[in-house]
Write a protein that binds this DNA or RNA. Sequence first.
RNA 1: GGAGACGUCGCAUAGUCCGGUCGAGUGCACCACCCUGCUAAGGUGGAGAACCCGCAAGGGUUCCGAGGGUUCAAAUCCCUCCGUCUCCGCCA
Length: 423
Amino acid sequence: MIDPALLRDSPELVKRSQTSRGASVDLVDAARDADAERREALTSFESLRAEQNAYGKRVAAAPKEEKAALVAQVQQLAADVKAAGARANAAEEAFTSIARGIPNIVLDGVPAGGEDDYVVLREVGERPVFDFAARDHLEIAEGLDAIDMARGAKVSGARFYFLKGIGARLELAIMSLGLDHALKAGFTPVIPPTLVRPEIMEGTGFLGEHADEVYYLPADELYLTGTSEVALAGLHSDEIVDLSKGPLRYAGWSTCYRREAGSYGRDTRGIIRVHQFNKLEMFVYTTPDQAEAEHERLLGWQESMLQSLGLSYRVIDTAAGDLGTSAARKFDVEAWVPTQDAYRELTSTSNCTTYQGRRLGIRARGESGRTEPVATLNGTLATTRWIVALLETRQREDGSVVVPEALRPYLGGLEVLEPVTAQ
RNA sequence: GGAGACGUCGCAUAGUCCGGUCGAGUGCACCACCCUGCUAAGGUGGAGAACCCGCAAGGGUUCCGAGGGUUCAAAUCCCUCCGUCUCCGCCA
């Protein structure tokens, strides 16, 4: 949730943010009206309640014979208090539901517009050039007997797959490399739950416009998480955390589940877009004034991962309209995928400022000693999808793949992945 | 799945049977000051969260797992839900 004070004091700032996202500006005025009504109702309830409390004390202190008369006098007051309380509750709820509909305020400098209005910040690394007909990642993987799509579909349906043999090892290797990166940077590794309660899923902002992306288990009222960001954000929900010794940095390793509703027909080949994959996710709790610098650091760690794998990539500053509900700014690192002649997203890092913190009740002591909502940030450090870019970039004419040096220690020193006969 | 116990202000606990003197006692931890050569101990005081009004000083409301109900008044009585623990069963 955005800061309600912002709504009151600088509505034009909120409106500007809404405009750059292509979101509703009217919502801002509606929220302001609801806030005014809420405060009015609250004040009237509180003064009535104060009156009633004072009466209660008089009743308690009064001699027995006077009690009945006093009690008779407050009957009406009690009814008024109840009505005022109900009105205040309703007004509060109305305000909250409107205010929650307003996505995070985008940061200055974020390009306005939709999906295609991103700004390319830089391109790094040479795009690979082949003097033979390059194979796509699935063809290579099938040659290595690393991915089995057909049987994945047989067992679980479309967009499911088996990683096997060197495919399974490759994923573990990439994850382990990422984990070592994270450890070096001081992150605490975490293997979080992947099923979460509704209020946690709600608090992270994933039940907004992308609710149909999320798997839900109605029998247990639990959601399957599409990223460990959800559980890691929930980790400190309703807590006052100690940031006096620096930010809390977690690296969550989990399986992620996504329904991919509305993407029928897109990326149907291979493991680019799947219902289930693994991901190593950085998640940081920090003070609001540190958030932007931390965001740059997260991006730096991501780039260093791609560089160590010898991938060619570009960094984009995502346009406002393409930000998630919670994000105030988002950088994507996209790797070059030769056979698609395109950059494809391998990592994404978002600065959610205090939006999630406010929704999830995560606070820290400010310098004044008062509590204030913390800023949260997240960023990908490795995912299953990386295998796509890796195989395609490092392929050779005979169908073998050269293992990047940084990855070799995680594959028992293996230097080249050789084609085998599939089983 | 069956039976039972429990959920109080950072932690540990008292209070709940008998509603008002309980927004709530005690211990530990914490902060400030005092005291003793230092440390430990001891003394005095302070200290929860959220929100509303106010330039401020300050005032007010809410919060005893959550939500309802009864009542002039609920930590305390009633209902529903959630969670934790123990035992039995079942499965690995």
